[in-house]
Amino acid sequence: MTQATTLITGGAGFVGSNLAHRLLSQGRRVRVLDNLSRPGVEQNLQWLRQQHGSLLEFVRADVRDGAAVNQAINGVQQVFHFAAQVAVTTSLENPREDFDINALGTLNVLEAARARPVAPGVILTSTNKVYGGLEDLELSVQGQRYLPVDTQVAGTGIGESRPLDFHSPYGCSKGTADQYVVDYARSYGMTTLVFRMSCIYGPRQFGTEDQGWVAHFILRALRGERITLYGDGMQVRDILYVDDLVDAFLLAEQNAPRLKGRAFNMGGGPGNAISLQDLLDRIERLHGKRPSVAFDAWRTGDQRYYVSDTSAFQRETGWEPQVGAEEGIALLFDWLAARQEKRSSAALASEVVTAGAH
């Protein structure tokens, strides 16, 4: 009997490559569909190929291509749908492209899965942005971070009972995808569920200013480059180390027949909540010097406070984060510093070779 394949759309990205590595390490066959548009992801794909060889299958395609998605789902038992346009800023510049990738791309995945005699399970990564700007949340300033005045929210974070309030084209497109995935369980009985993600970080993340801010801050600091804080830097997020997220994915897959049709908030929770200013302090301790900082205006849809209440998923599966923020940030710092050092050494060796050729 041929072993069933797991499809990961966006599987060469940060989260996708970490999940693929875990599945492949367990001997599972993985098909990665990715258009390789995000800088650095070719390195993740190369790493997966080196580690796992023929267990990995790669399809270079775009989720906007319905025919390619339909073909990629052949013989698949489970789909992890991560392919997305991931930045609020980009969605504001080009809302149609954002919609086509996030909303239409997700519908392509769902329809390809539904067309199969036995529909594979589909797990979508959504976003905390489906809850909007949370402007009604009364906040106080404590130290260098915002905290809710409501002690219950401060203690537990934002739960799934929070009304949806899409803000920004990105919030709208991901919110559309989120609700389609939830509804395909109700309307068609498919085994689908959603993770509404907070901030994920860890190895194989090549952070940009618009997404992956923990890695972005560390990279800028390592290169001696200035970091721009939009707003005052006191905005708070709960951060979750990628290994803990992969654990959650596998538990979601195992329990999906029971949990289908639900959306779960997923992040590090109140115990792993930090402000942007807090991260600068951590980087200073790890790096030995404080990063250079500039300030700019607040950005559209930027929540001053968002921390996930993950208790619903914890109750259902027993999951909880294992890697605390301090440990995880140090692990990512070491991984990025080692990469930076390796690149610097390679550049220096190249210069020596070039100089010797004259």
Rank of each mutant, 00 (worst) to 15 (best):
Y184W: 13
E97C: 01
A177K: 04
R343P: 01
A87Y: 06
S350Y: 11
E253I: 09
V353S: 11
A103L: 05
R116A: 15
W298C: 13
F295D: 11
L110G: 06
V63L: 04
S161Q: 10
G269Y: 08
A113R: 05
Q254T: 15
A20C: 06
F82N: 12
A346Q: 07
Y146V: 05
D296C: 03
Q235M: 09
A119H: 07
V63T: 10
R96G: 14
A87L: 05
V130E: 07
Q26N: 11
D165F: 00
V307R: 03
H167L: 10
G267F: 02
Q211K: 02
L240D: 11
D178I: 03
V69M: 10
G356P: 01
V149G: 10
V181R: 00
E97T: 11
L92M: 11
F249G: 09
Q152T: 15
G133C: 10
E57N: 06
Q85M: 08
R114W: 13
H52E: 10
L23I: 10
V69R: 03
L45I: 05
I101W: 01
L45D: 03
I73V: 15
D100C: 04
F217H: 11
P148V: 10
F313P: 08
R38E: 15
E135G: 08
L7T: 09
P257F: 06
G175P: 04
K129H: 14
R290G: 14
N70V: 14
S54A: 12
G324C: 08
P148G: 08
P163W: 06
G202W: 01
D244Q: 00
V122L: 05
P148T: 11
G231R: 00
D243F: 00
S17V: 12
V182T: 14
L134S: 08
P95D: 12
L33V: 12
Y230C: 11
F14K: 01
L336Q: 07
A103N: 04
D150A: 05
G328Q: 03
D247C: 01
H216M: 04
Q144M: 02
H81Q: 09
T9A: 06
V122T: 09
S54W: 03
E326P: 00
L7H: 03
Y131R: 02
D98A: 10
G189I: 09
L279F: 06
